[in-house]
Design a protein around this nucleic acid. Structure first.
Lengths: 198, 198, 198, 198
DNA sequence: AATGAATGAGCTTTCATTCAT
DNA sequence: GATGAATGAAAGCTCATTCAT
């Protein structure tokens, strides 16, 4: 289906991928307009449809591509069984920051994809979305939950950590200039705060 | 500016307010369409513009109205100085649930307003948004932070609580039928989980 | 579905119907553009979709309307059982010419509808198209086929008459100014030519 | 103008000619899309414009080529002065069927060209179109009109024959599989039907 | 010569907004 | 006040045409 796209020069591929990710990440599927992608990527309108048939097709491709890239990045970290939960959680965020070089909006996009509910695309992204979620949770399952596990409600605490990190990421992108260092520091601080409670 | 609107029958006012809140809360400013408000409210299209000039004007009014209503509701609870932080935080959520009778989408709308970033309206809602935030934080400042305060990072923990509660609310509205009881129970569980850590 | 349209002023209804008929008759379904209908009718683009949802909906409505009008016109002639075949066939064409006052492109449109093959609309127009064909043939069955019937191949001769009349109509519209009188005269001449052979 | 094209391998020439004829014959000038010709011919898009500059240029070439081929085929039949009109008319159709080997859509294309009215190309095809019409009519003038000529309106009868044959051809192509034998039989039957009247 | 990537005008459709009634 | 008909800019998508390779 998308072999044509892959035979483009890598630089242009990435310009398109980044343009689409940025707009989709910021506005969600329905709200994202081709014209804005044209503007931020410098790639003409016709070409988007030349490669991706239609808007759902584009979204589905970018989603699948982005999630695969994220999964690859995740799988590339050497999995040390029994890493401390908070440490591992932090490493996952570090991992996201490593994506920034090639795909500056990918971390934000990942979150927006996981929350996407538009019925025109929900079906199309179900599978890659689920796989990504599974890889993440199976990665986290290898953590040493240490003192956490002692608590009967440790799942709730993990929820809180996840919600918090997601919110921090969104906030970080909201500011004019996204700084991965500042973001990671915020994550670290919040993780530490909870860790100290245990 | 909107005196005209207030001379409408209260019932119709509320039908319009609820219609706008529902759509804005679900889709955000930009994605909300007049036609959908017409549909859910049963109030003709012309009337919306008769009373509110344009879409930013409508959003600004509804925001300001909704935030004021929420502030009133908040201020109506008898402030017992020194209530335990977690208890107070819970009461704030209870308070939101009390709004459901008149404005079923107000709690969701509050969150969406606080996150709204569309540049067409950001300016217009800045002030009421800030006032609401201030009232909330000044209310929370009256709490007894107990063991929490002992922690040097207690502000971070509070962040986590806030992010968590906001996410729980969004999740609660995502399900077909929003149940205030179920929501409050979730909030309670998460608050307790953290409280126990202290 | 189209009650809204019928509550328009009759004059505007007819302006829209005529605009659509003209463009559809000349270019066929697929080729007809809203912009051209806007131009010939002076009715804004948005309004077409306000009343007719989409292009197939518009085509289906105009088709159904035009065929019904034609059937009404046909049924209004006093049916004299046993009229000479050639006379009756001529009267059918006279009947079409009577439509010109209100719908100048209807006779041409009828032919184009009967030949339309676009798969987006074929289903939608099947029924009215069939009904019209049936009324026409049941009308013609009341004719006195006289000497014609004696011929074993009289059905083939009728084919020829039909093909000829259809071609004459198309030719007549091709000229800059369509003249019903000239057209009817042509029809008469050709009918007579064949009649004399019998 | 098109010498370049003629230096292509004959097989590729014919693939292009057939592709263009098929699409133009089926959809008319305006509705024919380059992409469809690319698809049915397997010849790349750029090449079409390399050889034919633009769409009118292509249409003009294919028209001129197709008409010339038809004229050649017509002129190749040994003209027996005084052949019976109906026989000659039938032979003309046989002649068209002989084109099918090389250009399966040429007979249909001929008819569509003669009816083409798009103003972008009308001028361009006027001359070849007229020449073809003239050759056809001068060929037919050599016929023995026999009993036909006795009729004062024999020209009208000839019209009817022509219209009928054209309609039969269009009908024949409409069916999934075009059968020259079946088509010729239909022509024969209709010609005979009229002949018997004389 | 040959390919197909690239472009932008134009088409169908949506939607905030205006206006006659 | 109240309605919904009316408008046109903008969105998703198609297609003739150009151009780098």
């Amino acid at each position: 289906m998308n072999e044509k796209f892959y035979s483009l020069k890598k630089e242009k591929q990435d310009r398109m991928i980044n343009g689409a990710m940025q707009i989709f990440a910021q506005y969600g599927y329905r709200h994202s307009s081709t014209d804005e992608m044209v503007r931020v990527s410098g790639v003409s309108k016709g070409l988007w449809f030349h490669y991706f048939e239609n808007k759902p097709g584009l979204y589905s491709f970018i989603t699948s591509y982005g999630l695969k890239y994220a999964m690859l990045e995740l799988s590339m970290r050497s999995v040390r069984q029994g890493t401390d939960y908070f440490e591992l959680r932090y490493e996952v965020e570090e991992c996201k920051m490593r994506m920034l070089d090639k795909y500056p909006y990918l971390p934000l996009f990942l979150g927006s994809v996981m929350r996407e509910e538009d019925e025109d695309v929900e079906e199309l992204i179900r599978e890659p979305r689920q796989k990504y979620a599974e890889q993440l949770s199976s990665l986290m399952m290898q953590a040493d939950y240490g003192a956490l596990r002692a608590k009967e409600d440790y799942l709730l605490l993990i929820d809180m950590v996840d919600y918090t990190i997601e919110a921090l990421l969104t906030d970080a992108y909201r500011s004019r200039s996204f700084s991965p260092e500042r973001y990671l520091m915020e994550v670290r601080k919040h993780l530490d705060a909870m860790k100290k409670l245990l």
